[in-house]
């Protein structure tokens, strides 16, 4: 026999019935593997924990933190009022921003070139300017238009108001936040629409739907699932950036904290009160988000259950 040809037997798995879970269980438990002890990791952990304890201790025991004052103001009526304004401001602005963002997104997807240009211009402007500048701008709108009027053309119906009365700190805050967030929301929604495979529109059209109906009934519902996580993130970020409205006396949590410390000069304790409440709100929003996500996106991940145990070649 030629030395170069090595005899090689090719393995063929003998035929056998498909294994069920019960059969797999009969093979008995797998060998127990013990976790390795890693000294370096333990050491790093200990050092970090020590640093944390020292830092925490110095913060908690620092006289200037004024924890007694923090406790005193944590549930004071003005602070609670501020919290409710912050929530109102965030929810209201986000609702307006989602609706406005959808309109802008549809405009920038439109086949009409003017609509497309307007959509692009909007996003370019509101994403390109700082929120703080916009807020101050809206607050001072009265300098630009001393009176705001609403009327129906061709009739005598005409109402107008003194701008300074209409644009309170709160309305300026809602206006500024929602216009700003709408630009971001439109980008999120546009990304969501583009994330839907083109075939979905083809299929909807091919069974006889009109383009608008296909958009509403087929594309947008699927977009929802994509845009929920980034929208929730946007909500949380708005919750925090809404504190910027303090510069125009928006009446939010930070504004209220400032009002209080401008009288009693307990700056740090009141900022701590605000910080704690912001943490509570963002944490709650994060938890709510994860539930929302599971609720909307959950069934997509529901994998079919198979009864066939994975093949085990070593047997």
């Amino acid at each position: 026999m030629n030395t170069k040809t090595t005899t090689r037997t090719w393995y063929v798995r003998p035929e056998e019935p498909l294994q069920s879970d019960a059969a797999a269980a009969e093979r008995g438990p797998s060998r127990r593997v013990h976790t390795r002890v890693n000294l370096t990791q333990i050491l790093i952990g200990v050092v970090l924990a020590a640093i944390l304890v020292v830092l925490g201790w110095s913060v908690l025991t620092n006289k200037n933190m004024g924890w007694d004052i923090v406790v005193k103001y944590l549930f004071s009526p003005l602070i609670l009022k501020g919290i409710s304004v912050t929530i109102e401001l965030t929810v209201l602005s986000m609702v307006i921003a989602v609706v406005g963002g959808a309109v802008v997104a549809l405009m920038s997807q439109s086949r009409n070139i003017v609509a497309r240009a307007m959509g692009g211009l909007y996003v370019w402007f509101f994403r390109g300017t700082p929120l703080l500048v916009q807020l101050i701008f809206w607050y001072n709108l009265a300098l630009l238009f001393p009176r705001i009027g609403l009327g129906i053309p061709g009739t005598d119906i005409w109402m107008d108001w003194d701008t300074n009365q209409v644009i309170s700190g709160f309305t300026a805050a809602v206006l500024g936040l929602s216009l700003h967030e709408a630009a971001y929301m439109s980008e999120i929604i546009r990304g969501g629409i583009n994330g839907i495979p083109k075939g979905q529109m083809d299929a909807a059209l091919s069974i006889g739907l009109r383009r608008g109906a296909a958009m509403r009934k087929v594309i947008l519902p699927q977009t929802l699932r994509i845009i929920i996580p980034p929208t929730a993130n946007q909500f949380i970020s708005t919750l925090k950036s809404s504190s910027l409205v303090a510069v125009i006396g928006g009446g939010d949590l930070l504004t209220c904290a400032q009002w209080i410390y401008s009288e009693n000069f307990k700056v740090i304790p009141l900022l701590l009160v605000a910080t704690l409440w912001f943490l509570v709100m963002t944490t709650a929003a994060t938890v709510a988000e994860s539930y929302l996500e599971r609720w909307f996106c959950g069934n997509k991940e529901r994998a079919p259950i198979t009864l066939i145990a994975p093949a085990n070649e070593e047997e």
């Binding site: 083809d202 299929a203 739907l209």
Partner: peptide, 30 residues
């Protein structure tokens, strides 16, 4: 379009609907 059915290479089933909802969708909507 309604009078001409089209079956695509990549199926293009509506992702947010069950099989039966996919089949019902056209008659219901259109």
């Amino acid at each position: 379009r309604q009078r001409i059915g089209m079956v695509f290479q990549h199926f293009n089933l509506f992702g947010h609907m069950s099989a039966v909802e996919n089949v019902m969708f056209g008659p219901r909507q259109v």
